[in-house]
Amino acid sequence: MHMSDALISPEVGLSMLAIAGGALALSCRSCSREIRSGENLSQIPLMGVLGAFVFAAQMINFTIPGTGSSGHIAGALLLAVLLGPAAGFIVIASVLLVQALLFADGGLLAYGANLFNMGFIPCFLVYPFLWRPLISPNSSRQRIVTVSLVTGIIAMTAGAFTITVQTVLSGITTLPFFKFLMVIVPIHILIGVGEGLITASVVLFTFSSEGAELFLGPKSKRTGSRRTVVAFAIAAAVLAGMLSWFASSNPDGLEWSVARVESTEEAGQQPAADLLHQKSAELQQSTSLLPDYQLGTPKSTDSTAAGSAISWRTSAAGLIGSALTLTLVLLLAMVLKMRQKRSAVPLARG
């Protein structure tokens, strides 16, 4: 499942974007070095075509045996096995970006979080530390299926766990951490079953048709170890930094529970947003048309959530104001549009 823009806060979104983006930049560097050196020229079409393959494969809903529910492949583990972790990560990053744009799966700001949950974890944690060490060129079919199934489930569950952490840290929804986890994990275990089985079947098939050595040679082992440990360490450090930042400014972020969502505590939340608010409030003070003017009782954007009874007059004023703003901008767009029609200059490129 995709983490959504609707549930993410800018600080979580941007930190995840930084981590995933960094991992992507490093992966691109190591892959393009290999391609440029001429030792891996076939990698470019292979990555492109397999990306298209995974994208198309995701459209197939299949029944997960014994459950009656359906799922589709996410593909990152498979890509890591077939292309190596770095190239696999690049491919899944391209697939997720297109999904974010074409289906609004996730969103622009949540892209980093999604790439971390669905790309980084399977490619840089599950594949090099679990799948690869457990499989050798003469592993039995049974073993490949079992390992793929188990690692598929682990990858999905870990992803579900990080989704929960990201959502709760963002603090847009009030769902408590453990309840959220209880809802989301079982679904992802099921998805993991499908993921694991499909991965196993395609891997087995490929190994038998193309030869396992191609994918399990010493080269793939090398790329699967040291570099990923370093990448992992960096990511862990950034993540830890981020978490501690939150922990200090938002003490109940992780243990958010129903009981705690009370008006008094609420006001102190959303740390970085507060920072932005503070800035914008300053700006507002300095640019305000009516300097002595007071917004609704508990000032700041948290007012509606703040629980204290808010006068409907304030809300009505706000609603009218936002509708007005929206209308004004759209009118402007219409005017631009008319001008564009009138001038009718073909703006075609090239």
């Binding site: 932005l276 608010h277 914008s280 409030a281 700006l283 507002q284 305000s288 048309l289 009516l290 003017y293 917004l295 609704g296 954007t301 304030t314 009505a316 004023a317 706000g318 609603l319 009218i320 104001g321 936002s322 007005l324 703003t325």
Partner: peptide, 12 residues
């Protein structure tokens, strides 16, 4: 973000 709509609305 700095609540322009509210300002506009209250003015109005």
């Amino acid at each position: 973000h700095s609540n322009l709509p509210m300002l506009l609305g209250t003015l109005l």
